[in-house]
Design a protein around this nucleic acid. Structure first.
Lengths: 343, 343
DNA sequence: AAGAAAATTGACAGCGTTGTCATTGTGGCA
DNA sequence: TGCCACAATGACAACGCTGTCAATTTTCTT
């Protein structure tokens, strides 16, 4: 019933170890032997036993994805990207959502790492930006790759990071609004624990400056990456008859923008005639509002796939830094119906 | 560095096997011995090696969640529910999205099952409703629990199913609309491959009949569980000046309802003054549209947690059918702003 | 063509648990 | 008290693979 490595070895007429070499794609196996073994593998439909490999080998055949993010679309994209790479490599994916607010999270996290002896971890914001976590992983000697908001110049982040250039993207979005004649542009920020928040804010400031538009703190609402925050932010910014003459609102992400849209509707404000709104990320969200959102496209599944790629190439030993691993991504502007000329 | 079962045994002054018994909660260990071992476990902060347990034991310490569902909120809820149970039991969760359209999916699926020797599987619709999959799993002798749309009376579905009574929920939703005076109630159906679609339709029919309202095929749009389908369905149903005098639309789920809402807005139809719309599932979606959706609340995370519960209780050997496993769930009506009196 | 170096393969001992079965301890009953 | 049944524990061999290192074969030198 169960086919083991011995059965394959017997059929191929080689030693068990040689079969092991073949399935692990180790070098120094003659082509002829390789083919011989592979045909035996196929004939018997052999599936290596993961548990045995984990036990005998130094590293395991599973990687972990760690996140603390309430945004379902984001998480699913991340999972799918990493998963597609895992499939390719014959690894399993263990998902590990956790809450960074939780005090004993870190301890629990450590336990789980030690238990499962994962081959590596993909960390997403904001955990990827938390120094204490990084330190712990370094101490434990675990391979990991961090997904971060950052610019090309941030290469001091060693070589285990995938950077998303929110700064440039925010610049582009802001400039788009400016080009439509907007000058009083508000910003509903995301969680301040996320580096993306400060990066996006910095990009926005930079664009304002480049076009000689004065910045004002009264245009900034410090919120979080949620629909509710978008609602509250817009309400706050526009209350009392919009004293700041805001003509456009940058949403920290698509959810926030959708929330702002919602609030605008409650206040009978027409989008985009009276107010322009933009999102960030281009999640399905941005196509399911009315009107559809102008946003910055960020292919989270592609990004996370590259994160996994980088992780595997690191875990395999840094023989070669895979060239097809792209380590910097810049979201690009997608113009839809939620932005228009300033009134 | 690494603490093994031997270290614990030595410290506790018992044999390795006894420690094994304790950590596996096997009966027939004296209380005194148990405490002795446990204190050694705690002192050394011992973590059993999962790989070794998998290899030596008959079943592994991970379960799988299988889904083919584009709805991110749904998937995340499912994952989180199962995950919370896994944490409790010290198991890992391996996620396995797959596409039932894909021809070699089944083969690939089989391979992965054999590879990872999972302790069990939680299957979600529509895969849980696909006979060929069930047959394959039976043949492989894998434990599984199915999440299905069905009624209490469907107990012929052996005892490894968790039922969601969409029939009753659709009845309730439809009755809600009828009580508001609606008589021309349209229905944008979900994918026909999903049993929930026919169940929801049946509940709707039943409610119409109970209130002597004639049914009409011209009020039914056969779509799928997506936003786009909701848009198209509503457009189709209401086109040419709404010849069927539709005053309410049942969305197959919240996404569909959101799509219908979107379409209505494009057609300048006021919700709920001119048209009532309802969703299904009470996903975050239903609170992020304007107006918010009347829907049927379905706690997917709770449901999936119970599915995992059931799976564990089965896998442990059917000693006792855990009484705290609830196997039937009926979504309940949540009235929000998208429904109103018929005009 | 012999000898050395390099490439390829194999033998064998773990990896850290659990299953099996044998051994020891404990309490009940005649 | 002595014997038996049964509960509690232990010894030891798997589980299916990989790491190590030694043996063999091939290739290259001169």
């Amino acid at each position: 019933m169960k086919v083991t490595i011995n059965d394959v070895a017997k059929l191929a007429g080689v030693s068990m170890k040689t079969v092991s070499r073949v399935i692990n794609k180790e070098p120094s196996v003659r082509k002829k032997t390789y083919d011989l073994v592979m045909s035996a593998v196929n004939e018997l439909n052999y599936q290596p036993n993961i548990a045995a490999r984990n036990l005998a080998g130094t590293s395991s055949f599973a990687i972990g994805l760690v996140y603390d993010n309430p945004n379902a679309y984001y998480v699913i994209d991340m999972q799918n990207g990493v998963l597609s790479r895992c499939k390719e490599e014959g690894y399993e994916l263990v998902i590990h959502p956790c809450s960074y607010h939780d005090d004993n999270m870190q301890e629990e996290f450590k336990t789980m790492i030690k238990r499962s002896r994962l081959a590596g971890l993909v960390l997403t914001p904001p955990l990827s930006e938390q120094q204490s976590i990084i330190d712990m992983l370094d101490e434990l000697g675990v391979h990991y790759v961090r997904l971060l908001s950052g610019r090309d110049t941030d290469i001091n982040e060693r070589n285990n990071c995938i950077l998303v250039n929110d700064y440039a993207a925010a610049y582009e979005i802001t400039e788009h609004l400016i080009s439509l004649g907007h000058k009083r542009i508000a910003f509903v920020l995301g969680d301040k624990e996320h580096k993306s928040t400060s990066e996006r804010l910095a990009g926005y400031h930079k664009a304002l400056k480049a076009h000689n538009i004065e910045r004002s703190d009264s245009l900034i609402y410090e919120g979080s990456y949620s629909f509710e925050s978008g609602v509250n932010g817009a309400k706050e910014l526009l209350k009392n008859g919009n004293p700041n003459n805001i003509t456009a609102i940058l949403g920290g992400n698509d959810e926030v923008a959708a929330g702002a849209l919602f609030a605008a509707r409650l206040m009978n404000i027409d989008i985009p005639a009276e107010l322009s709104i933009t999102g960030f990320e281009d999640s399905p969200f941005s196509r399911q509002t009315w009107p559809k959102l102008t946003t910055a496209h960020q292919a989270n599944n592609v990004i996370s796939e590259h994160a996994a790629r980088l992780l595997f190439s690191k875990a395999r030993g840094s023989r070669q830094q895979d060239k097809d691993v792209k380590t910097t991504f810049t979201p690009s502007l997608v113009v839809r119906e939620s932005t228009g000329y300033a009134k």
